[in-house]
Design a binder for these strands. Structure first.
Lengths: 221, 221
DNA sequence: TTTTGTATAATTGTATACAATTATACAAAA
DNA sequence: TTTTGTATAATTGTATACAATTATACAAAA
């Protein structure tokens, strides 16, 4: 994500703790002690502190002054809410992309779709992780193409949030195929400079993912 | 905002730097040196570092590893984009509030409107700051009432973002009166449990603010 | 003049020391 | 037994020390 995240200890600790919250290693209300985590990761308290402060800003951790940091956790309702919000914003993003997208970005979108289709045709079976990664790439190109720093930032955050939480396992073959087809339709609408259509398709695309989530027990609340 | 922000040095430094970026003291691409800021505020580097790392997460600061922190700045387009996004999400918020709002919250909304109307009737002229504060309160009650931690968090962030940036000065008397009237309409729709109407009105409410912004030179891009 | 190399200064990255605050253990009193 | 008080331990908050990295100044070479 951001520049320094990969280089500094603090950034890596941030990503690590975040992942461990989202994948369930740290559960709701767990106390996150600076020393304990530091020892676990082989670093001092300083980078851990930085990471915890950042995680609070993201809403994953609650800090009580002079007492400690606690996992806030992310409920099924939270994930559901994010999808509702995302469906609106992905629509807006596709609409804006119609205006701002470059030829190069169009080609990149095309490429991820082709690679996805290739994955699905493999005789040895498709790799869910690869499909998930390509899906991520497709969307982040669109975020970039929206020409909006704010919207891109927001959608990227959300994408990370839910992606790790629901893991890549949710990609059923049926859903994967439909998803790729929807990507292709979105791309076509953008190529045709059809704002209305692009927005609607991107909107529906996320709603379809939601229908799939519902089957897996993510209820409305 | 968050719990620890008021108590710890790091939290206060965070708020201070953020304010100074949004109100223009620190301009785009300004370098934010840990030592310099620390001396200015009479604290050591540690809390400043924490603050800068958090600000990067908010997108107000860019950190280049081993080199420094630079103000990212917030353009007119950014503010405009936030309003477009906000208009959608405030609509969603009002819709959800219809389902989740408590009687107490309804009363609080009523109260802020009454207080606003009282302000506008004052012979000595109304206080723009008071009106802005009441506007903020109205919206944050709604955010709370949406029953969505995620949506509330997001809208609160956005609200802070733009509020400080465009200062309270933009509140013209004409706009203030209309704004209060719109608040009243939104409240009525929520009371009537009319989701559709509540969403639409909240949506339009923000779009009206946008029209006002446009007059003040905030262009589409 | 322009470029390149190098010593020095400045700055960030991380660990650690110490103070302040909170949690815990346990004895004394009810 | 339950409650309260107090000493001690554990933890967070902040400052600072030191290492690593980058910026700057300036001389030497082209």
């Amino acid at each position: 994500m951001e520049e320094y995240q990969d280089h500094s200890l603090g950034g890596r600790v941030f990503q690590k703790i975040r992942e461990d919250i989202l994948n369930g290693k740290y559960k709701e209300n767990d106390e996150l002690r600076e020393n304990t985590i530091g020892k676990e990761l082989g670093v001092s308290r300083t980078p851990v502190r930085e990471a915890l402060r950042q995680l609070e800003l993201e809403g994953l951790v609650t800090i009580v002054p002079n007492r400690g940091a606690y996992v806030t956790g992310i409920s099924h309702k939270d994930i559901w809410d994010i999808y509702v919000i995302r469906s609106m914003l992905e629509g807006l993003c596709a609409r804006w992309a119609v205006e701002h997208i470059t030829d190069e970005q169009l080609n990149e979108l095309e490429e991820t779709i082709l690679l996805s289709e290739f994955q699905m045709k493999k005789e040895s079976g498709f790799s869910a992780e690869q499909i998930a990664a390509l899906d991520g790439r497709f969307h982040s190109i669109l975020y970039e193409a929206s020409g909006s720093r704010i919207l891109g930032h927001l959608l990227t955050d959300f994408h990370n949030y839910v992606q790790t939480a629901r893991k890549s396992s949710v990609v059923s073959e049926d859903r994967a195929r439909k998803s790729i087809r929807e990507h292709r339709q979105i791309l076509r609408a953008i190529r045709d400079r059809d704002e209305e259509m692009a927005e609607q398709l991107a909107n529906e695309h996320i709603m379809h993912v939601m229908q799939n989530l519902k089957k897996q027990g993510y209820e409305q609340e």
